[in-house]
């Protein structure tokens, strides 16, 4: 994607304009209620995907895992163990190996 530097030059002055602070005005806080979006994304089907879906999605959505770079089996094992020991993820011991195998077989894994 190419930009034209003519347009950039025209914008240069505006971009350097000082920020117009309005914090000197009286501040009044208002209560806030929001809805946070959830994700219905699950892990791609494959050997062990049920174990991953059942054990991992309580704390975080799948995107965090699927956005990870290629990681070795040792690195994924360390991550899964960190979730269990540091963050107290209630993962059944018999599922740990299955989860690590699944993560190591993700398309991004090596």
């Amino acid at each position: 994607m190419l930009r034209t530097f003519i347009a950039v030059g025209v914008l240069l002055g505006a971009a350097l304009a000082p920020f117009a602070a309005c914090a000197a005005a009286p501040l009044e806080l208002k209560s806030v209620t929001v809805d946070l979006p959830d994700s219905d994304r699950t892990f791609p089907p494959g050997p062990g995907s049920d174990a991953v879906n059942n054990n991992c999605l309580a704390c975080h959505s799948a995107g965090m895992v699927l956005n990870q770079p290629a990681l070795s089996k040792a690195a994924w094992s360390a991550e899964v163990n960190k979730m269990i020991t540091a963050y107290k993820a209630p993962v059944a011991p018999e599922d740990v190996g299955t989860i690590v195998e699944y993560l190591t077989s993700l398309p991004s894994a090596k």
Partner: peptide, 30 residues
């Protein structure tokens, strides 16, 4: 531009009080 990927991310406007953002994780939000 992530070396080796995965490099695709959604642009989201689904979060309260937020405009266009790069979605790194939905819950908890990144």
């Amino acid at each position: 531009p992530l070396p080796g990927g995965p490099d695709a991310r959604s642009i989201t406007t689904q979060f309260p009080q937020k405009g266009s953002m790069i979605l790194q994780r939905t819950r908890p939000p990144l």
